[in-house]
């Protein structure tokens, strides 16, 4: 089955039946390894929509970062499994109303990480990418590489547990079902087995490279405060420097702000120009939230984001005395 064609059909139908006035999807990007967000409001425009391995963008960020545009409008959105969880969170956090969105789930086999492809081509520019399913062919001036899908998928996808939208109005094609992904927490357990000073050195080396461009924050569907704490200047919480203590505090607090809200879409890590392993801390926090409070971000449309909820009888061994 051709997902792109089915997606186009379903967008056209939604627009023709006036179920939505706007539909958010992806179109072929101007560069071969990227897709561009597409805003569809007429049936003709629907023919530009695509879905393939380049469609990493989590389109739900428009709901929060461009809030005014979507107020009281019927909007359709194409979602991968992770994107759907973001939409659910947007609904739970009252950024959009459930009745105003039409969620169209697409079957996702993972999206690529541009940086991984460029590592394979030794930085040579890719002019064409062909998705063959199991493998991907990348072509450029004087090279033609056949790559295994697993070599270029985003780390988030390699460890994805919920590839299908759990909340949707329309689902295109065959769902993959829940993937029991043991590899997801392996890195964390390995890391935890190290000594405290080894962990500290590794963390410091990793985050010391951060140049504070905030691409990770800007691309994150769960980061949408009007004024981010790093941009506040009265009080100025942390220095706008690349000193590792400043960058590490930025990241620890960023992680806590997305605690119980991070859907592990991996957008932050793909966006990072310094290739910092941001997902590890995200997953660690998600693991704590799941173990302690039993919540998984964005899975339950009738739930409540973990950090704005509580139970009276929670474990509190960590409390002194």
């Amino acid at each position: 089955m051709n997902t792109t064609n089915e997606l186009r059909k379903s967008i056209k139908a939604l627009i023709a039946e006036k179920k939505v006035d706007l539909f958010l999807a992806w179109e072929k990007g101007s560069l071969p390894l990227t897709a561009t967000p597409l805003f569809v409001s007429t049936e003709d425009q629907a023919d530009r929509a695509v879905f393939d391995v380049t469609c990493g963008n989590n389109l739900s960020i428009y709901f929060t970062k461009d809030r005014k545009q979507f107020a009281n409008r019927k909007v359709g959105i194409a979602v991968k499994g992770c994107d759907a969880r973001s939409v659910v969170l947007n609904i739970l956090e009252k950024q959009i109303q459930r009745e105003n969105v039409v969620i169209v789930g697409v079957p996702c086999d993972g999206v690529l990480d541009r940086k991984k492809v460029l590592a394979k081509t030794d930085g040579r520019e890719v002019l064409e990418l062909i998705d063959n399913g199991e493998t991907v062919t990348v072509k450029g001036n004087g090279f033609d590489l056949l790559l295994n899908r697993n070599e270029i998928l985003s780390s988030s996808c390699l460890a994805c547990t919920y590839p299908d939208a759990q909340e949707y109005d329309v689902f295109i094609g065959d769902a993959r079902g829940e993937v029991p992904n043991e590899s997801r927490l392996k890195e964390i357990h390995d890391f935890q087995a190290l000594s405290a000073s080894e962990r500290w050195d590794k963390t410091r080396n990793e985050y010391e490279r951060c140049i504070r461009c905030y691409a990770c924050r800007n691309v994150c569907p769960s980061c949408y405060c009007n004024v981010c704490f790093v941009d506040q200047n009265d009080p100025k919480w942390i220095g706008s420097t690349c000193d590792y203590t400043d960058t590490l505090i930025f990241h620890v607090i960023r992680n806590l702000h997305v605690a119980g809200r991070c859907v592990e879409c991996g957008a932050c890590q793909r966006a990072c120009p310094m290739d910092i392993d941001l997902l590890m801390l995200n997953r660690k926090v998600a693991m704590e939230v799941k173990d302690r409070f039993g919540d998984i971000a964005g899975l339950d449309i009738n739930g409540k984001p973990a950090m704005s909820d509580f139970r009276e009888d929670e474990k509190q061994k960590f409390i002194m005395g």
């Binding site: 405290a196 806590l256 605690a259 801390l281 509580f310 929670e314």
Partner: peptide, 14 residues
């Protein structure tokens, strides 16, 4: 809840 997540996170980073 906040402390329950903060504490293991700080320990995790060393």
């Amino acid at each position: 809840r906040k402390f329950a997540v903060l504490k293991p996170l700080l320990e995790f980073i060393g």
